[in-house]
Design a protein around this nucleic acid. Structure first.
Lengths: 221, 221
DNA sequence: TTGTGGCCCGACCGAACGGTCGGTTAAGAT
DNA sequence: ATCTTAACCGACCGTTCGGTCGGGCCACAA
């Protein structure tokens, strides 16, 4: 029936174009805010053709999310495993997370939406459950990392799950904040140096909060 | 939940009913995700009557946001002014911000939406500009607080605007995270003790990051 | 008594929504 | 030469969208 992932590299065309366009529009205006007509037109084909590639708007949206999580896992996966102290590994994971968010401006917005929106999406859709699983796995990876650092005495005994919430806010929200964030920070959020600075700021905040006594260790990247 | 109007006359007031209903629905599913018919029905009157109270869906949404910012200013305003060390004042502001988010579960979601969504709303609408002004003022208040703490040598020389982004993420996002957040933390986000714990966690993270002991712990490399 | 104005309604409007249907190409495969 | 199939399309479907319109009801002022 549906051989979704079987065709690989040799597809330059419509399907990917639709995904690209949908990713951008959905990120900016949300699932309910974008119509399939608009997507089809922007992708350069008719609405009927769009429905030829994706059986419904739902599955198109989920396909977009799927690609997003592919990219995130690609960036974070290597960072979570590997050697080093807990602090080093957490910092590497933060770098990876920020890289994932900065790769495409659409990523943080779609992730943020999928995190806080009580989705209108069908719960039964297998693609939906699969995405939840992947998200859970990522969270679990981070959680274990923090827990290990606390158990080994390297970190203060913070609640790891609260720290994860803060971390998500500091990374995902920052790069999702669009006009507001740019007005606040004063520069484009996705310029290479702005991304590098965000990494520095987040890591230094994680490392020693606002306290001066933490000393000014500039860990270069 | 009717807040201020309930002390007054026995009128539940259709207008307020509409605002209450709209606030809850918009918070959950966003501006584009909610139709005026649904709102009217949930408020117990007809669509035409809704349009008698609010000239368009836009102004209804903006009226909802307006109430939200009223509440936030009520909570944070006093905290920003007042005496004490910079750290004390920042912590008081964080308490106020979290109180504002925890007062109604709708608040953080609507704030988050208004921060990261490139709104479909008319830029010219005066109500829209007014909300932007109020947001700017809040940000400016926080920013001055941090800047003063840094200048006085009490805080590390972090970039205050980055710290603000992190702070917003740690507070607004946390309480906006709904199902995801509850699954992660493991308890209802808005229970009194959960709110208190979040205050503690955020303040301790702000205070000394993940580092054990507020001092030393030099990281080489 | 006769407004008058606040509040409410059913009926209706054109546009847009997600989705279907039948049919037309063009490229391979048999 | 025929059959299959992926890709595409225009036309159409029923529903819902935000919004309008004309009028009904009722408390209260003149």
């Amino acid at each position: 029936m549906d051989s979704a992932a079987s065709l690989e590299s040799a597809t330059p065309s419509s399907r990917d174009k639709i995904l690209d366009v949908a990713e951008e529009r959905f990120a900016r205006r949300g699932y309910a805010g974008v119509g399939v007509r608009e997507l089809a037109e922007a992708a350069g084909l008719s609405k009927s053709s769009l429905f030829h590639h994706f059986r419904s708007k739902d599955v198109l949206y989920l396909a977009v999310l799927d690609r997003i999580f592919d990219r995130i896992e690609r960036h974070i996966g290597p960072a979570l495993s590997g050697a080093g102290s807990s602090l080093e590994r957490v910092e590497r994971a933060i770098d990876g997370l920020i890289d994932a968010m900065a790769e495409h401006p659409t990523t943080p917005r779609l992730v943020l939406r999928s995190l806080f929106e009580d989705d209108d999406l069908p719960e039964d859709e297998p693609a939906n459950e699969m995405i939840s699983k992947r998200l859970d796995a990522l969270i679990e990876g981070f959680s274990e990392l923090l827990t290990r650092g606390i158990e080994s005495g390297e970190f203060r005994p913070v609640e790891p799950r609260h720290a994860i919430q803060t971390l998500i806010g500091a990374t995902v929200f920052h790069f999702a904040s669009g006009e507001f964030g740019e007005a606040l920070i004063g520069t484009p959020l996705f310029a290479a140096d702005a991304v590098a600075e965000r990494k520095r700021e987040v890591k230094s905040l994680i490392h020693s909060g606002l306290n001066r006594s933490g000393s000014a260790q500039e860990t270069p990247r």
